[in-house]
Nucleic acid binder design. Structure first.
Lengths: 199, 199
DNA sequence: GCACTTCTGCACCGATCGGTGCGGAAGGGT
DNA sequence: ACCCTTCCGCACCGATCGGTGCAGAAGTGC
């Protein structure tokens, strides 16, 4: 994104513009977000957007990356928790907070950004599916380690446990998109954690 | 939909066409489904579609109604089950089967049909949110009855239990949209049901 | 056979989609 | 001061969006 020091420097803050674009994608989805709406929110012209980010798909990819590093950075903390139970707890409560953050759209960009789409959204849909699968894989690896460390029973299935936890998170994202409050979702997360290990 | 017996009768089967439209909405979402794609799948012209169904929004509403009466009719069976535990079990396993039906799109129309959308999809999004809330309400009423009948502990919270069950179902719909198999999801449902009552 | 109604295919509507070509303005290096 | 690069606002591109007007064809009741 930074390529030259010579010439007229850009007048806008790329990170700030990307943040605004991320919010629009988060709220309206990949297909629902138009170039006009994106650039208006970003405060720049179409031409500047294309020069700085490539095209709509690339902008979406970069917005998702920013989302990963910012909004959902709690997953890093979760994976570093001491026990498998705490991993699940930090992950789920972090999800709830991210899905119901005041001033941000409800729900999760990684879920509602592109779930079912037409031809033009295929790439975005696949990018998000891969993104979710990647998160689930990190959880699975962590639970696998927990099994090896004796933190989980030796016959526990890390794949199933990771999928179970991710399913709860995905479901809460849908609930948040439908208007569920932080308190309601925290209680759901609490209920899901009563069951541990879940297999 | 049936209004006159005089005049030239329509040449296509409205129910059959609606079924095809439902599948397109299911697969591509409300915004992703174009009139061109819909009418092509339905095998009729734009004009015939408008005459028979009104407009795109009305077509979507009628497709959702057909989805309710067909694909997700298992919810009726679930609500009639003898115990709250069985209600949850029939509901969740029914969800898994509906989300992974061979020959149908993966996932749930009620979830992926319109989760995050632009201006033009607002109505569809709200229709679906209300649809999901309605299902959850039915579950809550059933669990409320279970409390009154002593089938659930007297301090159990029907609202929380219904939201918990619906969250699992919503999450499995996202998982299915991402490619999870029926077997994988049945194991998740089984794991979720180990935890009963979930509060 | 006639009148009446409705169906259907085609072309077309204005609006918007994602994406660009152009030309002037503006900053940095030397 | 010069040059060179980059930025940026505007107009515009073909394609597609949801939705319609028109006219001919076709079926039903009398």
């Amino acid at each position: 994104m930074e390529k030259a020091q010579i010439g007229r420097p850009r007048e806008f803050d790329a990170e700030e513009a990307l943040q605004k674009a991320m919010v629009v994608f988060w709220e309206q989805g990949y297909e629902g977000a138009s170039l006009a709406g994106l650039t208006e929110a970003m405060g720049i012209s179409r031409k500047s957007m294309y020069a700085a980010f490539g095209n709509k798909e690339e902008l979406f990819r970069k917005a998702l990356q920013r989302y990963s590093e910012g909004t959902v950075s709690y997953i890093v903390d979760a994976l570093e928790a001491a026990t498998a139970r705490e991993v699940a707890e930090v992950f789920l409560t972090g999800s709830v907070r991210a899905n119901t953050r005041p001033g941000c759209p409800s729900g999760c960009l990684g879920v509602q950004g592109a779930l079912a789409v037409g031809e033009s959204g295929r790439v975005a849909r696949d990018v998000l599916a891969e993104w979710r699968a990647g998160g689930q894989e990190h959880l699975r690896d962590r639970f696998q380690r927990a099994v090896e460390e004796g933190d989980l029973p030796s016959d526990a299935d890390p794949d199933l446990i990771a999928r179970y936890v991710m399913t709860i998170a995905n479901g809460m994202a849908v609930q948040a998109a439908g208007g569920a409050t932080r308190e309601e979702l925290l209680r759901v997360a609490g209920a899901a954690l009563l069951n541990w290990p879940p297999a």
